[in-house]
Simulated assay, not measured.
Amino acid sequence: MRVLVLYAHPVPESFGAAIHETVVASLKAAGHEVDDCDLYAEGFDPVLSPDERRGYHDTDANAQPVAAYVERVKAAEALVLCFPVWNFGYPAILKGFLDRVFLPGVSFKMVDGKAQPALHNIRRLAAVTSYGGSRWRAFLMGNPPRKAVCRALRAVCHPLARTTYLAHYDMNLSTPASRAAFLQKVETKLAVF
């Protein structure tokens, strides 16, 4: 399967980087073709310009500023997001990617004023992430990142797409053992992705 990995963390020695390395290695070991998109390393500009916003609904031209990324999304059969949860959301660079690349005509199409999913090529969706706080705290806050992946992002994929959400909670209190156990869980889950 062709898997697009979207990675969003600026620090190469972070636990986020270890998660990313585990994700890519596990997918490759399982025989998948991996397109590893490190948004920071590639210098992705997350800022939607005024002209891009004005032309947002022009499906003949809206993807031109990010055409290479649109092609990578369209070529993928699966999408894996690797990101830390910051302020109960995506890092700005990942949010900006979704704002600029998941456009009308790309991730959805408008039919009679209603959005319909258009990423039918994406049949598997996963997020591998970490939270500073506990699972309980995330639950009390409504766990916006999980909903953003499992509901909003899932809604633009193939109707039968399967979703996996793997999170290491309580990073503020994590230990080498808890981090190693999480990486092992990621490896195990992605071995059968």
Score class of each variant (00 low, 15 high):
Arg179Phe: 05
Pro12Lys: 07
Asn121Cys: 11
Phe44Arg: 00
Asp58Gln: 09
Gly55Asn: 13
Gly132Cys: 04
Glu33Gln: 14
Leu39Trp: 06
His9Asp: 08
Glu13Phe: 13
Gln116Met: 10
Phe15Trp: 05
Arg137Thr: 15
Glu187Trp: 02
Ser130Gln: 11
Ser134Glu: 09
Leu173His: 15
Glu187Leu: 01
Val24His: 05
Lys28Trp: 01
Ala161Tyr: 02
Tyr40Glu: 03
Glu187Gly: 12
Val11Lys: 12
Ser174Pro: 06
Ala8Trp: 04
Ala76Tyr: 08
Asp36Pro: 03
Ala155Arg: 09
Ser134Phe: 04
Met171Tyr: 13
Val106Asn: 09
Cys150Ala: 10
Leu190Ser: 07
Ala78Met: 04
Pro104Phe: 00
His57Leu: 15
Cys150Phe: 00
Pro144Asp: 05
Gly16Cys: 14
Ala191His: 12
Val3Ala: 11
Ala177Arg: 15
Gly113Glu: 08
Ala118His: 04
Cys157Tyr: 02
Asn62Glu: 07
Lys28Met: 12
Glu77Ile: 00
Cys150Pro: 00
Ala191Lys: 12
Val23Gln: 01
Phe182Arg: 02
Tyr169His: 15
Gly142Val: 08
Gly142Cys: 11
Ile122Glu: 00
Pro12His: 04
Ile122Pro: 00
Ala67Arg: 11
Ala63Gln: 09
Trp86Lys: 02
Glu13Ile: 10
His57Tyr: 15
Arg123Cys: 03
Ser26Leu: 00
Leu81Gln: 03
Asp45Trp: 07
Ala191Asn: 11
Lys185Cys: 06
Glu52Asp: 13
Pro159Asn: 08
Arg54Val: 15
Ala191Cys: 09
Ala180Glu: 12
Asn143Val: 03
Arg100Thr: 06
Phe83Gly: 01
Gly43Pro: 11
Ala127Ser: 13
Trp86Ile: 02
Tyr56Trp: 14
Met141Leu: 14
Gly16Tyr: 05
Leu98Arg: 13
Gly31Asp: 08
Phe15Gln: 03
Lys28Tyr: 06
Ala127Arg: 04
Phe139Trp: 15
Ala41Phe: 10
Leu4Arg: 01
His158Val: 01
Lys28Ala: 14
Pro91Asp: 11
Phe97Leu: 08
Val80Thr: 03
Ala75Gln: 08
Tyr69Met: 12
Ile19Gln: 11
Gly132Gln: 04
Trp86His: 05
Asp60Val: 02
Thr164Asn: 06
Glu21Gln: 15
Asn143Gly: 06
Arg2Cys: 04
Asp112Ala: 14
His20Trp: 07
Arg151His: 13
Arg100Tyr: 08
